[in-house]
Structure formats: C-alpha cells, structure tokens
C-alpha cells in the first residue's frame, strides 16, 4: 500500500493545529512562566513506516505503524512537521504540516491516520490531563480509521455512541480491566475487539481505532499518560481509642487528690497560726 501526499488533509491538520493554538492562547490566562508542551506522535496508517521530521530535523526515524513516539517536550511556538518514507528526502514528504502552532502547557497527540475517505491525515488531539480522583482511571477512545461511525462498548454496554473519524469519547471510570469492543453505530456488528483493557489507576488510556474497514486493516493503538493520580482523601485507621496517649483518668485523680490535700494542710497551718 502506498500513500499519496494529500495536501488537503495536511491543510486541515494545520488549520486545526492553529485553531488549537489560538484557543490555548486565550485559555491560558495570566502570563505565568510557560512550561513546554508535551507532544506525542501516534502512527495509525497501516503498512507504511515513516521518518518524522520536526522543523527539518529527523526526530523519529523508521517510525513503524502501530507505534507511539514521545512525549517530546517542545517549547511553545510554530513547527513544521513532515512524514517521509524512511530515507526519503524531506522534499518528497508523504504528509506535511507547516507552521503548526504548539501552545505552551498543552499535552497534544499528533496522529498520523486515515481519514473517513481512506486518505492519510495528520490530526492533533488535545489530551485531558486533569487530575483524577483516587481509584479512578480515564478512558479516551479516538476514531482515527477509514470507517463509518461506531459505538464503543465496555462489557457489552455502549459507552461512547456514534463516534466518527477525528472525534473522541472520554470518561473517568473506576480503575480496573474492561473488555471493550467496537461496533458499527447502532448495531451489534463488531468491527474491532473484544480487547481486554487494563485501565491503570491515575492514568489516561487513549485507544485509537486505526486502519481501514474496506482494506480490513482495522486495529487498535494505545497511548498511556501516567501521573494523573491523586492521594486518597484520608487514612482512617483506628476507632477504638486505646491508643490515645493522653493522661488517663486515675492519674488526674491522683493529681486532684494531691491538690486537695495540700490545700487542706495549708488551711490547717493558717488556722493553727491564728490561734
């Protein structure tokens, strides 16, 4: 299978990146010191290894389909991204995106995939890296395949319905293993899976449906983002009261008796002296 450079797909990607950058700029608020953006590259085009160039520099050589590269820590700014056949000159790139805006502090996945019509595209997704409550996990499912709208099911129940190419479904769930599959929207016609997903606590698991339904190359690619955990609310570990190391009642009694005795003695002394 060969990939034809598709200028339109690339343009769409570039526009999306720029739109993303603009949104990021407005949302970022006061001028804090900006952290680098975290950028991960996901390869979801079957059958075609590529070299990934960032600003003309070969960054990920021999990048195989189904693999995930990164994260790259990139200062905010504009980037030229190009995908070539391994060893090819950057001038004969399969896909290029120029002046892609990478906003500060963002966590982005840049996904090389097929669009709904089966043409290669490079689509940026913004990853939700908000902290998770203790015990929770985040599942994000992205449609990046040349396939119609699908439902994503967990344990046989639809969790994300009518997801189309370039879109995602997202939910925070209890950590643990779920059996997930992908069916044509509104049907029981399975196109992918079932696959057991071990959803780690405090992490986001991003599952990409990639490939082509027509070419029967549909597959799943998974990316994980860890470090989103929170500490438990507390550690309640006793309700008996035996370990209270405060002064126990008998000793208070001894002290009180002592004070009374001393007072009584002093009174007698005072009275005796008066006589």
């Amino acid at each position: 299978m060969s990939i034809i450079p598709v200028r339109r797909a690339a343009t769409v990607g570039a526009v999306a990146l720029i739109a993303l950058g603009t949104a990021g700029a407005f949302a970022s608020g006061p001028a804090y010191a900006k952290a680098n953006a975290s950028v991960t590259v996901v390869h979801g085009i079957p059958g075609q290894p590529v070299d990934v160039y960032v600003n003309g520099e070969k960054t990920v050589p021999g990048f195989q389909p189904g693999k995930v590269a990164g994260p790259l820590s990139l200062p905010a700014g504009q980037y030229d991204i190009a995908l070539t056949k391994p060893g090819d000159a950057i001038g004969s790139a399969l896909l290029t995106v120029n002046d892609a805006e990478v906003p500060a502090d963002a966590n982005i996945s840049l996904v090389a995939h097929l669009d709904a019509g089966g043409k290669p595209a490079l689509t940026p997704f913004v990853n939700d890296t908000a902290k998770l409550a203790a015990g929770k996990t985040r599942l994000i499912v992205r449609h990046a395949a040349a396939a119609p709208a699908v439902d994503i099911r967990a344990g046989g129940e639809p969790v994300f319905e009518g997801v189309t190419n370039g879109k995602e479904g997202k939910a925070d769930l209890d950590a643990g293993t779920v059996s997930a599959d992908v069916v044509l929207a509104g049907t029981d016609t399975r196109v992918l899976g079932p696959a057991d997903l071990d959803l780690a606590e405090g992490a986001a698991t991003i599952v990409y449906a990639v490939g082509s339904a027509e070419d029967e190359t549909l597959d799943l690619v998974t990316q994980s983002i860890t470090g989103l955990h929170s500490a438990p609310g507390g550690v309640p570990s006793g309700n008996g009261g035996q370990a209270d190391r405060g002064l126990s009642l008998p000793w208070y009694g001894v002290g009180a008796a002592g004070i009374l005795l001393a007072l009584a003695g002093l009174t007698r002394l005072a009275v005796g002296r008066r006589r």
Partner: peptide, 22 residues
C-alpha cells in the same frame, strides 16, 4: 499533709509529662 499533697501533684505531673508522645 502539705508535703504529701505536693508530692502527689508532682508525681502526677511527672506521669503527665512522660505520657507525652516522643
């Protein structure tokens, strides 16, 4: 009697201090 009273107060005080966690 005063001496006894004072000593009891002192003893309870010592125990109170010792019962503080390290």
């Amino acid at each position: 009697m005063v001496a006894l009273g004072v000593s009891l107060v002192a003893v309870s005080g010592v125990v109170a201090c010792q019962s503080q966690p390290a």
